[in-house]
Amino acid sequence: MSKRKFNLYFVPALVNEPITYVLVKDFDLKFNILRAEVVEKGGQLLIEVDGKPAQITKGVAYLQDMGVKVEELNEFVTKDEERCTNCGMCVSICPADAIEMDRDTWKVIFHLEKCIACGLCISSCPPRAMKLKT
């Protein structure tokens, strides 16, 4: 079993397709919706998929066949260690508990695997150490 995160982009015509249902039923994938939004250009869904590696690959292929743009999310936010002062402003802002204060060293630890790519830490970081991965 493995876990991967994907950003799915839908054109308006696809918004009514029950694609998440198909992912569960036909590919036996568990998924967690981390973020969802609908804008003029269509919809965007950030999901974490949990399942057999081969099934995940097949599920992604299905989505692409349907016309969904699929983008795997590896590293969205990075922490510039040089710039970070370890204040911890981001700790209470992060909705995913991906940023933690180590209470022995008083250093800020960023758990990339928990990051849901919301970007809230980027704008709230006073020394601008949290950055968009480019």
Binding site: C87, M89, S92, W106, P126
Partner: peptide
């Protein structure tokens, strides 16, 4: 309620 420090305790130390 979650707390955040604006000053760095790490640097203070």
């Amino acid at each position: 309620v979650k707390t955040s420090s604006l000053s760095s305790y790490y640097k203070a130390r």
